[in-house]
Design a protein around this nucleic acid. Structure first.
Lengths: 124, 124
DNA sequence: AGCCTGTCTCGACGCCTGTCAAATCAGAGA
DNA sequence: TCTCTGATTTGACAGGCGTCGAGACAGGCT
């Protein structure tokens, strides 16, 4: 997409420590921008955002593809493609248990993105 | 992009009241997913994410295009295009003052996105 | 008026992405 | 082993997106 420098050392958004200070506090470092933007990009589709939400809010912390798919007017392969995108963005994990595949959210990345967008209360 | 229902009534992310409960708490409503995903999509590019950060963290709360452009290895038109994208996503406002154009962040949307991604402390 | 500088718009190019149908893989059960 | 069901992969297509150069517009000069 953006043919910018393209982060040679990918930032690990699942690391324990936070990657960056809030976006409105200090400029996002170029090396981190690639990894962070990739995560936002994965959430930048209505279907994926809903999938992410369904997975993250599911009882037991996980959701079965068999429950996800019928919630949309899309074919199975398309849902599978979106789930793969979320997986490759590090937002979810997949696990096969018998016949079914279950997806589970990775709270760490979500937390990092949330803190990146954090804005001071209302003191401007 | 996604040929989903496509929200006929766009959600106003700049409204005073928050649009939705945290993504991990309750499923994002399909009608809201479009508007929210559009905002995330706008942040889903390394250049735009850095632009957003430079604007939001700038002294005085605003940044001049003349300061933004030289920070990237991109032509003026390209930066202008990205800024327009951020503007159309409702993330920033633009104002011309004399020769220069200044961009300013809209904290409301940022806040909404942050609260959408909010995750419970660490109590699982 | 005429020019210069800063910014945006337009048109074009190539890559990326969302979607589907068809084929393939993975387990479970007979 | 064969078959059936659930999920993913592959291949193809249309449309979207990031980028640039060229041109247009805006405002401040002289």
């Amino acid at each position: 997409m953006s043919k910018q420098p393209a982060p040679l050392v990918a930032i690990d958004l699942n690391a324990a420590t936070s990657c960056c200070a809030p976006l409105a506090q200090r400029r996002v470092p170029p090396e981190a921008a690639g990894a962070l933007a990739a995560a936002f990009k994965a959430l930048g589709d209505p279907v994926r955002l809903q999938l992410m939400s369904m997975i993250a809010s599911a009882g037991g912390g996980e959701a079965c593809v068999c429950d996800l798919t019928p919630a949309f007017d899309l074919t199975g392969p398309t849902i599978s493609h979106h789930l793969r995108t979320l997986r490759e963005a590090g937002l979810v994990d997949a696990e096969r248990r018998g016949t079914w595949v279950y997806y589970r959210a990775r709270p760490g990345v979500l937390r990092q993105l949330a803190s990146l967008l954090a804005v001071k209360p209302t003191a401007s």
